[in-house]
């Protein structure tokens, strides 16, 4: 019986050439329009990259072109949501993942701060009560050092 080395099939492991299709460039122009709108009116924009017909390498070309900025954050709710500022101020990548790490959605958000990162008004409604409960001893609150 032949070993693996005896099988006359060789895998071509040379780096494959990158074929530019031009699919990422229109998104960059859409981001530019959204930035103009944000600066002029304060109106934010979200672009769902799952809805864009990208081929192999297109997403990487887009994220490489946008670069990496100063801020990154992770929200742990129903799995991780990773937020990364790009090198363009006001342009963020928001990567929604489920608990198994599979991508649910990938948005480019053009805003001063991504909406999901801000404290939510529905949660703020219970914030005082939550803090008050922690100020009362014996309510399961962390003990304060005196």
């Amino acid at each position: 019986m032949l070993g693996l080395e005896g099988i006359p099939v060789q895998i071509d492991s040379r780096p494959q050439p990158i074929h530019e299709r031009g699919n990422a460039l229109p998104i960059v122009h859409e981001v530019r329009h959204a930035l103009e709108r944000l600066i002029a009116t304060g109106e934010g924009t979200q672009i769902d990259l799952n809805a864009i017909p990208f081929g192999p390498g297109d997403e990487e070309r887009l994220t490489t072109l946008l670069g990496t900025g100063e801020v990154s954050a992770t929200i742990e709710a129903l799995g991780p949501t990773r937020i990364q500022e790009t090198a363009i101020p006001g342009v963020w990548l928001v990567d929604y993942r489920n608990a198994e790490g599979q991508r649910l959605a990938l948005h480019i958000e053009i805003a001063t701060i991504p909406g999901i990162l801000a404290a939510q008004s529905e949660d703020l409604a219970t914030a005082i009560a939550t803090l008050d409960a922690r100020l009362r001893p014996g309510q399961g609150a962390p003990r304060l050092e005196s």
Binding site: Q46, I47, D48, N50, A51, I75, A77, L78, T81, Y96, L104, A105, H107, G115, I116, Q120, E122, D123
Partner: peptide, 19 residues
């Protein structure tokens, strides 16, 4: 609430609706 919003963002993407 953030988890719920995330669920809604994924639902919008799934329904092919804009964010």
């Amino acid at each position: 609430r953030r988890g719920f919003l995330k669920f809604c963002a994924a639902t919008a993407s799934m329904m092919a609706l804009p964010p």
